[in-house]
């Protein structure tokens, strides 16, 4: 019993310590937001890497999800003669939930892993130390541009994902399920509210922030050697995915609870 309590206590303390370190890291990142020097070139590169180069994976994920969603809703709706709600449910499902969450998870897989591995490798090969000796703050040069870029570009990716997801649903509904193309789109547009779109984009910004922050944090905290880089990358992706899902619940509660 004592052993069990000791293990529980150790895990709790470890988790709290990690949360504290992440909170300090977040504070340090924000601390650099308004203090020069700024690195616009690094910011532009991060925008391109996180935003533009993620478009294919985001587009494909959204397209297939939208299509599958249309099939599921049609099949499920048929049980109580509600097949006609496909456009509305696809729209609300994609925009409110699946768009931001799936794009967030895709970014966690593609971008968080890449950031964590890159920064961790820089750490074990003394490139981070070299930055310091060259009078460059690694937080300002590596972390801030990535976190800022991900926070700003993720709403755009989510918007693109939402549109492509809805189009995936539209394609399946009109080609397989016999829906009228114009009517489907009209139903989608009429049904969606500004609040749905706003909450979707806000979720995107939060998920982007979390994804990049975890990549940078775990990269900077990496231990030595190839194993250290591997652990940092794995830890970053797991933490980002869990935090995105937890944040999604909290944001959904905040946006949509009556």
């Amino acid at each position: 019993m004592t052993r069990l309590l000791a293990a529980l206590g150790k895990t709790t303390l470890g988790t709290l310590a990690a949360l504290g370190r992440i909170a300090i890291f977040t504070g340090q990142t924000f601390g650099h937001l308004l203090r020069p020097p700024f690195y616009p070139r690094e910011f532009a590169t991060a925008l391109l890497q996180i935003g533009y180069f993620s478009l294919p994976v985001v587009g494909l994920t959204a397209l297939f999800t939208g299509g599958a969603l249309a099939l599921q809703i049609y099949s499920g709706g048929a049980r109580f003669s509600a097949e006609a709600v496909v456009p509305q449910i696809v729209a609300i499902g994609m925009v409110r939930e699946l768009g931001p969450v799936l794009v967030g998870l895709m970014i966690a897989a593609r971008v968080t892993s890449s950031i964590a591995a890159e920064i961790a490798t820089m750490k074990v090969t003394e490139q981070i130390d070299a930055l310091v000796t060259l009078s460059t703050d690694p937080m300002k040069y590596l972390t801030l541009p990535r976190v800022l870029a991900a926070t700003l570009v993720m709403p755009v990716l989510v918007a693109v994902g939402n549109v492509i997801g809805i189009m995936g649903g539209w394609l399946v509904a009109t080609q397989r399920l016999g829906f009228n193309p114009t009517g489907y789109l009209r139903n989608t547009v009429d049904f969606l509210e500004l609040h749905d779109i706003g909450s979707s984009l806000a979720k995107g910004a939060v998920f982007g922030f979390l994804a990049a922050l975890m990549g940078c944090y775990y990269g900077m905290a990496s231990e030595r050697g190839a194993m250290g880089v591997g652990r940092a990358t794995k830890g970053a992706v797991v933490a980002a995915a869990v935090l995105i899902l937890a944040a999604n619940f909290l944001l959904t509660e905040a946006f949509f609870s009556a």
Binding site: P37, T125, E126, A130, L134, T136
Partner: peptide, 27 residues
């Protein structure tokens, strides 16, 4: 200060000249 690191610690993402001129391009 200037420092030569054991493994070079060159920045992989930058070409050689930008590595050398790193300090002269910022700050």
């Amino acid at each position: 200060f200037g420092m030569l690191f054991q493994g070079g610690a060159l920045f992989d993402s930058l070409p050689v000249w930008q590595n050398v001129a790193f300090r002269l391009l910022r700050g």
